[in-house]
Design a protein around this nucleic acid. Sequence first.
DNA 1: TGAAAATATGACGAATCGTCACGCTTTGAC
DNA 2: GTCAAAGCGTGACGATTCGTCATATTTTCA
Lengths: 239, 239
Amino acid sequence: MNTQSRRQREFEQRELLFVNAARDIIRSEGVSALTMDKIAELTEYAKGTVYKHFTCKEDILCALCLDSLGHMYDLFQRALTWEGCSREKIICIGVGYQLYTRRFPEEFDLLIAARTNNIREKASPERLERMDQVDSLVMNAIRAVIQLAIDKGDLTLKNNVLIDDLCFGLWSMSFGLLVLDHARDMISGLQLSPSDELMLTQMTNLLDGYQWHPLSSEQDYHGAYQRALEYLGTTQVKS
Amino acid sequence: MNTQSRRQREFEQRELLFVNAARDIIRSEGVSALTMDKIAELTEYAKGTVYKHFTCKEDILCALCLDSLGHMYDLFQRALTWEGCSREKIICIGVGYQLYTRRFPEEFDLLIAARTNNIREKASPERLERMDQVDSLVMNAIRAVIQLAIDKGDLTLKNNVLIDDLCFGLWSMSFGLLVLDHARDMISGLQLSPSDELMLTQMTNLLDGYQWHPLSSEQDYHGAYQRALEYLGTTQVKS
DNA sequence: TGAAAATATGACGAATCGTCACGCTTTGAC
DNA sequence: GTCAAAGCGTGACGATTCGTCATATTTTCA
C-alpha cells in the first residue's frame, strides 16, 4: 500500500509549489500584493486547495520563512566544514548569515516579522513549532563551534557565562547588524564603512572581548573573511 | 489671527487621541484586532476623520512607533545626565533601551516591523521621514558618548573604524539582543542567563574588544548597571 | 446675520479573507 | 469492468475591513 506515501509526496510537492508561487509574487510585487487568490491563480489551483495547506495568509508567510531557513541551515552546515581555527569557523558562520540575507532579502524581511506577535498570533502552531525546530538546529551549529573552541582551549568562559549566552550574543549581534544594515538606506546621515567590514569589525571586537583566541592582535582575520565569502559564495543553493 | 494655531493645536491633540486609542486596542486585543472603525468608535469620531490624520492603517502604526520613540528619546536624554565615566554612560543608554522595550513591548514589536518593507511600502513618506529624524536624534545620543570617550582618552578607534561604525555596532547588538530576548520564549531549549546579565555581558565584551577603558578587568560594571536601572527606572514617562 | 470656507460624517464600492456544500476523481472489493 | 464509498478539489458565498467622497454640519469673519 504505497498509495498513501505517494499522496503524501504529491501533497508536499504541491506545498512547495505554493510556497514558491508566494515567493515569486512577493519578489515581484511586494508582500502587500500577496493574496491567496493570486497564489491560486498562479498555480492553477482553487483557493480552497491552497487552504488545505495553510490555515491563513500568515501561515504561508511562515512556510516561506521555513523554506528559506532551510537554505540558511545548509549554508551553516557548509560553514562548519570550513578548514580553519575555531574563530575562523565562527566568522564563516557569520558570513553564511550575511550571504543568506543577500540571497533572500524578502524572506529575511519576513523572518524579522515572524519574530513578532503580529504574525505569530495568526500562524498555525504546527508551523511555528517547525520554525522553532529549525531555529534550534541553527543554534546548534553555533554551539558546536563554541564547544570546539572551549575543547581546543581557544576560549574560556568566565563569570558564570553560559555557552548559550555567548551563542545568543553572537546571534543577536549578527541579527541586529543584518537587520539594521538591511535597512541601512532608511537611516539617513550615517557615515558607515561598507557592510562587509562592518560585520567583521563588530564580530572581531566581540570575540576579542570574550578573549577568543587567537585574538585579532595575534592574527588578522580579513583574509579569512574574504575566503569564507568565496567558499560559501560558490555554494550551490539546493533546488 | 490665532485661529490657525489653535486649530493646529487641536489637530495635534486629536492625533494623539487616535494614537492612544490605537495603543489601547493593540494592548488589549493585539495588533490584528486593530481596525480603523474601532479607533473611530473608541474616540467617538467618524472613520473619515481618522483618515484626515493617517493615510492608512500602516501609517497609524508608524505614528504609534513615533510616539513611543519619543519616550525612548527621553530615556536616552536622561541617560546622558548620568554621572559616571564614559563607559558607564553607554551602559546607561543600553539600560534605557532595555527599559523602553519593557515599558512598550507592543510598540517595540511595531518598531521591529517598521524596519521592514511590509510596513514601509504603505506608510506615508512624511511619517517615515519623521521616524528617520527621531532615529537620528537617538543615534546622536550614542555618538555623543563615544565622542566623549575619545576626547577623554578612554577610547581610541583603530584600523579606520569610524565613530558611526561603533555607534552602529552598539545599536545592532542592543537591538538584536532585545528583539531576540523579546522573543525568548519562542526559542525553546535555550539555557540562558537572565536578561539583565545577558545584556551586560554582551555589552561588556563588545566594549572590552574595542578597548574602551576602564576595561571590565579594571572595573566591575555590575553596580553601575544596577544603579542605571534604578536611575532610569524612576524616570517619569512624560504624559 | 448669513454666505463662504473649513471640517466631520458614515454610507458605499472594492478588495480580500476564509468557509463549505457540492461534484468530480480515485480507490479497491467483487 | 463496475460500482459504492472515500477522498479530494472547487469556486461561489458571506463576512470583514479598507479607503473614498458626496453630503451635512460647524466655524469663521465681513
